[in-house]
């Protein structure tokens, strides 16, 4: 439950959130145990015939180089999740933390920052990520994705904290001589407690999309570390006659993003 909306969430919404978090939990288990769960090590080729359809031996089939798609999907998922976690940490730290602090800056400075970030938040994050990668190197793709997703987190957090700052209770606290630093600390603690899970899940969904797309375009993960985006890109030439090599990694990606979105509570209406 968020701090501003104190009404109890409808049953359906909390149920969907539960579904989302359980899904993320299962994915976390799959990622940690991927080396044990996957029948083959990462990148092992020639395990079977090339482009074999799904069978009992290879439930997800094999790809162009005869790699087991099930194992590759599991390994790819773990690479994607690892990079996405790093990126969301960047997004939250940069966006969320700075957003909260900016809301407490002197009015002019805070408003300027908010306006600048608002402009960045309006640009598709994918373009920002490509720009950041172009400026640095593709080793830093998670960092770039995190930075690209940061403006939106910044704007959201800023607006929530700014609303608290303008609220009646903050004014009364100031009128009783309670220092601005105390109020900021209070807001940060409650913001963190009330919204961290939501913000993290939402950031995870956003950066996963960015990272996978960037990889698909060839600016992201570099072989031998193959994430899901790269796998889909590699399988796209054979997609029309061997759908499984691309479809199963894509399915994994969809499930991951869907779970993260559900866990974040589907709060599209809350946008500033």
């Amino acid at each position: 439950m968020s701090a501003i909306d104190t009404a109890p969430a409808p049953v359906l919404r909390s149920f969907l959130r539960l579904v989302g978090w359980s899904g993320l939990g299962l994915i976390a288990v799959a990622v940690t145990l991927s080396d044990f769960l996957a029948p083959a090590p990462a990148g092992a080729s020639g395990l079977g015939p090339l482009l074999a359809a799904p069978s009992t031996l290879h439930p997800f089939g094999t790809d162009l180089l005869g790699r087991d798609v099930l194992s590759e999907t599991l390994h790819g998922l773990s690479v994607t999740v690892g990079r996405a976690l790093l990126a969301s940490a960047v997004a939250i730290a940069v966006g969320g933390l700075f957003g909260a602090v900016a809301a407490r800056l002197p009015r002019a400075a805070g408003a300027t920052l908010r306006a600048a970030m608002g402009v960045f938040a309006a640009i598709p994050a994918l373009l920002l990520a490509l720009l950041a990668i172009g400026l640095t190197a593709r080793l830093y793709a998670p960092l770039a994705a995190g930075l690209a997703a940061a403006p939106l987190a910044f704007v959201r957090t800023h607006d929530r904290v700014a609303a608290q700052r303008r609220s009646a209770h903050a004014e009364y606290a100031r009128a009783m001589g309670i220092a601005a630093a105390t109020l900021l600390r209070r807001d940060l603690i409650y913001e963190f407690r009330d919204t961290f899970a939501t913000v993290a899940a939402r950031a995870l969904a956003a950066v996963t999309i960015i990272l996978s797309t960037v990889s698909f375009l060839g600016f992201g993960a570099t072989p031998p570390a193959r994430d899901l985006g790269l796998m889909i890109a590699a399988a796209k030439t054979s997609y029309l006659y061997a759908w499984w090599a691309a479809a199963f990694p894509a399915l994994a990606l969809v499930v991951l993003i869907l779970c993260a979105r559900l866990a974040a509570g589907l709060e599209e209406g809350e946008r500033p």
């Binding site: 009646a168 209770h169 309670i178």
Partner: peptide, 30 residues
């Protein structure tokens, strides 16, 4: 702000207290 530490407010407004704080924290804060 330092001077105002010796001022207390009791108002009829229901939003004069931070709704997120606990009862104890609210009293402890000053």
């Amino acid at each position: 702000s330092r001077l105002r530490r010796r001022v207390a407010f009791i108002t009829g407004a229901d939003d004069a207290l931070d709704p997120r704080m606990t009862l104890w924290d609210t009293v402890d804060e000053p």
